[in-house]
Design a protein around this nucleic acid. Structure first.
Lengths: 133, 133
DNA sequence: TTAGAACCTCAACTAAGGTTGAAGTCAAGA
DNA sequence: TCTTGACTTCAACCTTAGTTGAGGTTCTAA
């Protein structure tokens, strides 16, 4: 099975319209994410944005993270872990994934603990742990 | 271990200030939640709000749900499952908890699947299932 | 080389989820 | 009874996460 982003890694110089279409986001959202420091682009001689293929991975991360309650500010911190100089590889994404899973683990754990208390379940440290992952 | 809300069930007629203090939310947020149909109150002869103790359970649910990405509209739908006529019991909260865990399971599963693909992990149906719960 | 689609910036607008402040009312202790 | 703090409504404002539109530029295919 192919890496979800590998299909686009060879595609340097994507236009904002191409990224928008492939990432199913509006071009205005991409400009907004760039203004917020979540993604970056290079400019052509004519001042138009061109993206590396890995921006699609970032965009998918952003959307998925938002679905589980992370704010733009929190996502910026998470994405800041990715390397600056080069296009992130699987090891870079793996580190980021580990951190996100850990953060999410805590939040889900809190909701689960509350759900347990509200529904009168006995709560043990191990039951909370297993349900939270 | 005591039920998290049991300590307040005997306390009928809580003022908005008392609920705000115990639930660690602003009184303005409680008025907002009421306007949004998430909580309800009765009024005194002098038009002041009085709350049943179970409103604290609702408020805690609301905050926890928001932390994991549910909107007010989604939380309203979830809380609408609770009974109208009487103060919800552990069975009512258990039903609600089950629905929420299921919804959350799906969202976390989506993020986990994306994280797996980005970090190049092999994805199997069973690995996705176990990580998502 | 020119039409038109796609791009640019900037400002104004939107919706969600509240907060703040003004002006007035209620409730509880001295 | 009176005062003082907690309460009421309503309108205006705030932040977050974008969208929309105006006015202008760039790219591409004929």
């Amino acid at each position: 099975m192919a890496h979800v982003c590998a299909v686009d890694w060879h595609a340097g110089g994507l236009t904002i319209g191409e990224v928008a279409a492939r990432g199913r986001v509006a071009p205005s959202a991409l400009r907004f994410y760039e203004a917020q420091g979540l993604i970056s682009s290079v400019r052509t001689a004519g001042n138009q944005r061109r993206y590396d293929g890995d921006v699609l991975c970032r965009v998918m991360m952003i959307r998925a993270c938002q679905r589980v309650g992370l704010t733009i500010a929190e996502i910026r911190v998470a994405l800041a872990e990715l390397p600056d100089g080069h296009i992130p590889g699987t090891d870079d994404w793996e580190r980021l994934a580990a951190r996100l899973r850990s953060e999410l683990h805590d939040r889900i754990g809190q909701l689960n603990a509350l759900l347990d208390e509200l529904s009168g379940r006995p709560v043990t440290a191990s039951s909370a742990r297993s349900r939270a992952r």
